[in-house]
């Protein structure tokens, strides 16, 4: 449904997106996972035809995005910010956006009712959007994007700042849309969302997709590594601990995170006694120890040396 090849965008000397390529099939959710400023929004702006690209190709259902309105007609976009007319009612917002996608008459009325129902806003349909809570506005934001039943739905961090109830409702809706055959591009910097929703995930940092695949493939790429978190308290002890641990056999990498050191090591649990012994010999006392199954956060940490939230 969506094919992206060699997408590139520069702002002056700064390369915001560099050689981004991926594809999404119908009924598939593809996640772009990366920290703020990684190039997620710039990428989807180019994919949605909002932002001119410097290089690369984007086709949606076989239509080049440069075709303009015919290509944009099959995309639904849900921006990261709440892009609503807050002085209009929920229904008026939906009617306006429906008409912009050439819906009218009964088709528009039914589509608006369905979208309101899908996001649980039917009882508030005729209320002014500015009277809605943040979570309700987010849901209406989503409804405006799915109203015309797009073949490709682009969701840019759709759960930022929402309450758990609205977040859960959004997840359910996204899964229903996927089951209905919609191809979904989902950007987030929340690892849990990517793990729950996305069949395939591209991890993006500094404008590049550094690795992509299914969750299982990405985690398997870490080999037999386990992540060991050792709490040492703040201070110069962290730096010393890194240099002590880094020399040990089987340790692949060591990073600091807050008042912890994060150690990736072959067969991590088996390395633990040697690790603690080395720290003790250096007069460093572990305040807490945790051995964690690898996840997408670890993949990102291993690939970039930074945490997703950095």
């Amino acid at each position: 449904m969506l094919k992206v090849r060699g997408l590139r965008k520069c702002f002056g000397d700064r390369v915001a997106v560099d050689d981004v390529s991926f594809s999404i099939d119908s009924g598939e959710i593809y996640g772009l996972l990366g920290p703020n400023g990684a190039g997620k929004t710039t990428s989807i702006s180019m994919i949605a035809g909002i932002l001119a690209r410097d290089a690369g190709e984007v086709t949606i259902d076989g239509i080049d995005i440069d075709a303009g309105p015919p290509a944009r007609a099959v995309i639904g976009i849900v921006p990261q910010s709440i892009a609503l007319y807050t002085d209009l009612t929920a229904r008026e917002n939906l009617n306006f956006w429906g008409r912009m996608y050439d819906l009218s008459g009964d088709r528009l009325r039914v589509a608006a009712e369905n979208a309101l129902d899908a996001v649980g806003l039917t009882p508030r349909a005729d209320d002014i959007a500015s009277t809605f809570s943040g979570g309700m506005q987010r849901r209406l934001n989503l409804a405006c994007g799915i109203l015309h039943q797009p073949k490709l739905l682009v969701l840019d961090e759709p759960t930022v700042g929402v309450d758990p109830q609205s977040r859960s409702a959004i997840f359910d809706l996204v899964e229903r849309l996927r089951d209905g055959g919609t191809a979904i591009l989902y950007t987030t910097h929340y690892m849990e969302e990517a793990e729950r929703l996305c069949a395939r995930i591209g991890i993006i940092d500094a404008g590049k997709i550094i690795v992509d695949g299914t969750r299982a493939e990405l985690v398997a790429g870490l080999g037999q590594d386990a992540r060991i978190e050792i709490g040492l308290g703040r201070g110069e002890g962290l730096t010393r601990a890194v240099s002590v641990v880094d020399r040990l056999e089987g340790v692949r990498s060591v990073q600091t995170l807050d008042d912890h050191i994060i150690v990736f090591a072959d067969h991590g649990a088996h390395r633990l006694p040697a690790l603690l012994s080395a720290l003790l010999n250096a007069n460093l006392v572990a305040e807490s120890i945790r051995v964690v199954e690898p996840n997408l956060e670890d993949v990102f940490l291993r690939m970039t040396g930074r945490a997703l939230r950095d």
Partner: peptide, 14 residues
């Protein structure tokens, strides 16, 4: 400011 303009630009509108 509210980015609704981006949504307009993403719609099939010249």
């Amino acid at each position: 400011d509210s980015r609704t303009i981006l949504r307009l630009m993403a719609s099939p509108t010249e």
